[in-house]
Simulated scan of single mutants.
Amino acid sequence: MTVATVTVEEAAAWLQSGEAVLIDVREADEFAAARIDGAVLAPLSAMPAAWQALDLPADRKIVVMCLKGGRSHQVCAYVGPTGPEGQPLFNLTGGIQAWAAAGLPIVED
């Protein structure tokens, strides 16, 4: 299955404008250590229940992210090209590592 992807720059613009919601599928300890502001945690280890528990807005793109893009790709392949209400689904290319490398802000505890 082909998974749609989005660059960190494009995803950052979507998030800033309110066009997208960001789902982080890393584990809770990774999320606590460093995360993208506004991201919602739904760990891969807790799928599919974690995905089903999300309250995803019908009018926004869904961007799925992890550390480098592997786990989020798995989730995107599992969920399919769209969210529960037809929202387009995208894998964040390069994950939080690419986000940081691009100089985009990260919340660190």
Rank of each mutant, 00 (worst) to 15 (best):
G94S: 12
P88Q: 01
Q87A: 05
Q52N: 14
E85V: 05
A50Q: 08
V63S: 05
G70C: 02
R71S: 04
K61D: 05
A12C: 12
I96N: 02
A50E: 07
A13M: 03
W99Y: 13
A12H: 14
T7A: 12
E10H: 05
P43W: 08
A98W: 08
D59K: 04
T2D: 11
S17A: 15
D29V: 10
H73N: 14
D29A: 12
H73P: 01
I62T: 11
K61W: 06
P81F: 04
A77K: 09
A39M: 10
G94F: 14
P57N: 13
C66R: 05
A46R: 14
R26A: 08
G69K: 10
Q52A: 14
G18T: 03
L22Y: 04
Q74W: 01
Y78S: 10
P88E: 00
C66S: 12
G80F: 11
A33M: 12
M1L: 08
F90S: 02
V21C: 01
G80L: 14
L67R: 13
M1S: 10
A58L: 01
E27K: 07
V75M: 00
A20C: 06
E30T: 14
L44E: 07
A50P: 09
A100N: 10
G103M: 14
I36V: 14
I96Y: 02
W51N: 09
V79C: 08
A98T: 08
E85H: 13
P88A: 04
M47G: 08
A101T: 12
E27Y: 08
P84L: 05
D109C: 08
A50H: 13
R60M: 11
G83P: 03
L89K: 08
P105M: 11
L89E: 07
L15S: 02
L89D: 06
D24L: 14
A98Q: 07
G38N: 09
R71Q: 07
Q87E: 08
T5D: 06
A58F: 01
N91R: 10
V75E: 00
A42G: 08
A100V: 14
E9D: 03
I106D: 01
L15D: 01
S17N: 15
R26Q: 10
G38S: 12
A58N: 02
F31S: 00
E27I: 10
D37A: 15
A20L: 04
L54K: 00
T2Q: 13
V40Y: 07
F31D: 00
P88F: 02
Q52M: 11
L67P: 00
R35G: 03
A39P: 05
P105K: 09
D59E: 06
F31P: 00
C76T: 02
V107T: 15
A53Y: 05
P84W: 09
P105D: 11
Q74R: 11
A58I: 00
E108N: 13
G95M: 03
